[in-house]
């Protein structure tokens, strides 16, 4: 990953000379929303490369454009300036090829579908055969530790389990990019820790590229290979921090000096980017 914001900062993580495949490439991305209160500059000059297999966290106060950026990647929002490519395609072309699995803050499971039925939803839409649907549902429910809950309805599950089901739904059709918008934001810390741990294992096993929006510094540091610190008004990238922690991360790693050091850098970054004003 490389940050090429102007003025150019000291390269973070450009030293790696092994060839990396860039999955998402944003150049000078601008997005201005026209609202009743006048134009809102949601994104300004966002330039960012995300490589295959990266786990990138976006952190910053509300209004810094982290969710908007995610939505631009998913072609749910159209940038008003600059350029963004996903696998050398436009986001909308990539969307048509079902390149993304999107996980929202609210699990958003359909109350009229069982857990298996919910996971099956994208598969039905894409048009997998019935056998393949069954097979994939079984596989991804195992991946998120929900085997045995196939026939339960969402209201019969806890919030954390519902969110796991929604992750399974996003994984079901093998999208190579997972876009997660504060997926654990509404959960309590104990459940969140557990899900963070599981998400890391899942990433390890599936080797997906994950873009993860969060409000939580420990969550960002614990999960990511890169932490993108953003600042508000206009929403822009303040700093990209490459996470030096090893890929193998037990929960206890959060008490190590190395972890605290990274967390400190993120906090400093937020402060410098006026992240605490908002």
């Amino acid at each position: 990953m490389a940050l090429m914001e102007k003025p150019l900062q000291n390269e973070q993580g450009q030293g790696a000379d092994c060839p990396k495949e860039t999955v998402i490439r944003a150049r000078d991305l601008d997005l201005v929303f026209q609202t009743n209160d006048g134009p809102v500059h949601a994104l300004k000059d966002v330039t960012l490369d995300i490589d295959r297999g990266d786990f990138v966290s976006f952190i910053g106060p509300s209004g810094c454009g982290k969710t908007t950026f995610l939505r631009v990647i998913a072609a749910l929002e159209e940038p008003t300036g600059g350029e963004i490519m996903v696998n050398d395609l436009t986001p909308d072309e990539a969307r048509r090829l079902r390149a993304y699995g999107y996980v929202f803050q609210a699990a958003g499971l359909y109350p009229w579908r069982t857990i298996a039925g919910n996971v099956k939803l994208p598969l039905e839409i894409i048009g997998f055969t019935r056998e393949e649907q069954e097979e994939r549902v079984k596989k991804v429910l195992e991946l998120v530790d929900l085997e045995g809950f196939e026939r339960k309805y969402p209201w019969q599950l806890s919030g954390g389990m519902q969110q796991r089901a929604s992750i399974a739904r996003a994984l079901a059709f093998d999208a190579e990019i997972l876009l997660m918008d504060e997926p654990f934001g509404a959960l309590d810390e104990i459940v969140r820790d557990h899900l963070n741990e599981q998400l890391l294992k899942l990433w390890e096993r599936t080797n997906k590229t994950i873009c993860f929006v969060t409000h939580s510094i420990p969550e960002a540091v614990y999960l990511s290979t890169h932490i993108v610190v953003m600042s508000p008004r206009p929403g822009r990238i303040h700093e990209v921090i490459q996470n030096p922690l090893p890929r193998e991360r037990p929960l206890e790693i959060r008490d190590t000096p190395e972890f605290l050091e990274v967390a400190h850098r993120v906090r400093e970054g937020l402060k410098a980017g006026h992240g605490y004003d908002g």
Binding site: A74, L76, G101, Y110, E124, I126
Partner: peptide
């Protein structure tokens, strides 16, 4: 909006969104 956006990320057709999301929601 999120539910409709989700359908969009699946590249669902208008008819699919109607049959699988709007119609059951309205019951």
């Amino acid at each position: 909006r999120e539910q409709l956006d989700l359908m969009k990320t699946y590249n669902a057709s208008g008819l699919q969104s109607f049959l699988k999301l709007r119609l059951p929601s309205s019951v």
